[in-house]
Design a protein around this nucleic acid. Sequence first.
DNA 1: TTAGGGTTAG
Length: 742
Amino acid sequence: MKFLNLKAISSYNLAALVFPKRNLSFFSETQLSKPLIEKSFFKSNSKDGLISRLCIDKRYKEAVDILCDQKRLKEAVQLLNRIERPSALIYSTILCHCLHERALEEGKLVHAHTKASGLVPGLFISNRFIDLYAKCGCLGDARKVFDEMPDKDLCSWNTMISGYAKVGKLDEARRLFDEMPDRDHYSWSAMISGYVRQDWAKEGLELYRMMQRCEKSRCDKFTVSSVLAAAAAIPSLRVGKEIHGYVMRTGLDSDEVVLSALLDMYGKCGNIDEARRVFDKMVERDVVTWTAMIDRCFRSGRSKDGFSLFMELMSSGTRPNGFTFSGVLNACADHAAGDLGKQVHGYMTRIGFDPLSFAASALVHMYAKCGNIENAKRVFKGMPKPDLVSWTSLIVGYAQHGQPNEALQMFESLHKSGIKPDHVTFVGVLSACTHAGLVDKGLEYFHSIKTKHGLGYTADHYACIVDILARAGRFKEAEEIINGMPIRPDKFLWASLLGGCRIYGNLELAKRAAEALFEIEPENPATYVTLGNIYAAAGMWGEVAKVRKTMDKRKVAKKPGLSWIEIKREKHAFTIGDMSHPRFNEIDMFLQKLSKRMREEGYIPNTNFVLHDVEEEQKEQNLAYHSEKLAVAFGIISTPPGTPIKVFKNLRTCVDCHTAIKFISKIVDRKIIVRDSNRFHCFENGSCSCRDYWRFNFLRGQSTISEMFGYLSISASTSKFESFTVDHVKREEKVLFRLEQY
DNA sequence: TTAGGGTTAG
């Protein structure tokens, strides 16, 4: 490298060098004098003038500091060329900023510069190079620097190991870890956290045990948090408690991150009360702590706590981030809380969210699940580069909305975009085929999972294809697939099969499916109900009684259905025959009037699916007060003519209600949307968007009753409401939402 | 005066 003598450079050249982007052509070289330059730079930017003067005075370190502070790394690097013998401190300063900005290109220039100048970088500088390369994903370059170092210190080894561990190259990391002459707790914690991040929690824990056997190494706060994450991932409450004890003994409980890890561990191990205790004891809570706590609430079925904590967070002054939003949006999706989801979206927009983040895909998911497929699509279109999760959410959304063609079109577009579908995407595609009744197309996609896309089948794929075949009555093919499965059929598969058996009255196969289900989840009432209904439809009342007896013996209770509707931001929930609503009399009168009109139009109540062997008239009476009918009726009398009605139900919608609502939509000339536990039904002018899909699968949705109840924790015996008034960070926008009382 | 930990969707 040719070093220019500074004295030989005119002030003009220096200025051009330091400020290459600045147009200096208006200076003629002869005119340019030092005071003039200073004057002009002082005018445009006082700091630029300062840099210029510092360079002239050879105070390069200070000039570099200013350039680096202004994030003008390129200029700082260029300045290096003009310094006769840059000090290690100058290199280190620039490298430090390159690292901070992940400026690989500039870092490489600095590296080239050190090589060309013949400088043998010391440990300090070399370690920075390793770190920079590793952080920018150039592990090969990092390793080269590492290998070429004549001497290495602990930091060199640790940086290299953590570089490998962070990108999941655990074998390479472990090789170095085993090879290294000496280890400190940094080395252990880099390796342990690497394992945990790659879902190798057990290996992480093993390493921790190994570390305990080495007398020299003690746990620090970093090791402790990684081990806690391992205990959470396994999950092992025993190990978690052991670490908790250690944390208390060593005073590590003053560290916020350790406490967050502790909280998360308890949450993931199912001990939500202990998690909450840790949370409540914390003096300082950052956004991660809040998010971890909120998320754990949602995941353990304490949604009410989750939502109110979210509201608390909003008024605490801590700003939620993408993690927080995605957690809350998913909870909104699960609870069909579209209004709240929309408000969260509004808030996100105001504070500016990253459309590339997973919070954006959570928005797509939320809108799709809350019945607003248009908004889901809008958010999707607003994403500069939608990720696979967003594509999949939309595909699943279309399938659930009874728009299988759109779903399949989306899948083809996904294919064209170059993003590779994964197993979840295929669950969406197959379920679109199910909803559309595309049996052969479904089979084609099913086979392509393995042959064309090189993916393995998951239990979900098998359940979907059995669902498709069973609905079509192709039981032989379904059985062939089941018999050839390398994995054990799961409850969803058997439930699908049982659902198919119900349509075609296939008693023999139904018994086999039900037996399998009783073995997997004897506590699920849905199996008993469906089997009972199959017998009931065949008039085999003796068998129905046996099923009921078994239910009683095993203490399985049929969970009541619950439908709810939001009117003016207030939720109104109904159970079967629910007379507790203050406007029940009006609802009842309206239903009676409606019932008369429906019969005139040709509606015949379908009493086949009422479990009890009761008198025909009583059955009809039961049917008339099903929760979804009550909610729909209430929606109609509470809104102006023409307003679309949106009802949510925790179980599958019942066969008779489905028929009835088709009639109702025509009689009152309204669009009625019902989201049940499985999909959306959009009733309009006497028909439904599902094209009577319900007939083909009665059980699949019902098999999730217990899960739904776990999630919603709604007591069906009450329809009282509790409201939360929430002040957003922006005070003028009041967020109101209501949840059913627990 | 270098290296590191906790929250993440379909």
